[in-house]
């Protein structure tokens, strides 16, 4: 048996927007199967641009992206979008169908799966985020934390290889934050988490990557990166007042 290909491979990725603004200058990133990695960096570092490349929403720059060995290109787009599940920051953007169950079924139905399989996956994904009771409710009747978890379910139902979360802890109350962390920790998928919430990164991701000005400036154990004051200061990253990464068990 050969070793499986990395879940995500980004090789020398560079990209400029049509207006000439260059966002990425040769990014390299490799995520092995089952890894949980935080993507850190100040606003405007290129994090979102990088994420948009992972499922081929943005293409056409230099370099290449592969998902579990499959290159992201026009031809593979549908399969790539199955393999990479992106959870966007505002759950109201992600949940557009009239009921929770319809929304979780949106991806699997787009894949053309038979209806019994769709039903099975909806039940499984909602159970994984502890929202099985909400299947028939309209999304706008749920709390913000519940909507965020349902948003995670909407991509889990596609059985992704990589789960990409954009600011998963934003706007959550402490209980909602903890509930989401419990859900994420239990998921058996490769995880890439874009966040400004450094304690959350430390809690969930053993490894972190710092992106600034379109290049990867640091890649290592989260605990060590967060203990490096000079590195944090150089890239506009700040720990909450009184938080010491070395004292967290």
């Amino acid at each position: 048996m050969s070793t499986p290909p990395p879940s995500l491979l980004v090789d020398d990725l560079a990209f400029a927007y049509p207006d000439g603004h260059q966002a990425l200058f040769g990014v390299d990133l490799r995520l092995d199967q089952g890894e949980r990695v935080a993507l850190l960096g100040p606003n405007g570092a290129g994090k979102t641009t990088l994420v948009m490349h992972l499922n081929g929403i943005l293409r056409g720059g230099r370099g290449r992206v592969e998902v579990a060995g499959l290159p992201v290109d026009e031809h593979n787009l549908q399969e790539v979008r199955r393999r990479v599940g992106i959870v966007f920051q505002d759950p109201d953007d992600q949940l557009f169908m009239p009921t929770v169950a319809d929304d979780v079924a949106f991806g699997p139905r787009n894949l053309g799966l038979p209806e019994p399989e769709v039903t099975r996956r909806v039940a499984e994904a909602l159970a994984a985020v502890d929202m099985a009771d909400a299947a028939d409710r309209p999304p706008h009747h749920l709390s913000f934390g519940q909507r965020r978890r349902v948003a995670v379910a909407t991509v889990l139902s596609m059985r992704p290889e990589v789960l990409v979360l954009d600011e998963p802890s934003s706007n959550l109350d402490p209980a909602g934050r903890r509930e989401l962390a419990e859900v994420l920790e239990a998921l058996p998928v490769t995880l890439l988490m874009v966040t400004h919430d450094l304690p959350y990164a430390l809690q969930l991701c053993p490894r972190s990557v710092v992106l600034d000005a379109g290049v990867v400036v640091a890649d290592g154990a989260t605990r060590e990166l967060l203990a490096d004051r000079e590195l944090l200061a150089a890239h506009r990253l700040e720990l909450p007042f009184g938080f010491d990464p070395r004292s967290v068990g």
Partner: peptide, 9 residues
């Protein structure tokens, strides 16, 4: 964008 990401055709 969110729809495209989940295979909207």
């Amino acid at each position: 964008l969110a729809m495209l990401s989940r295979g909207y055709t």
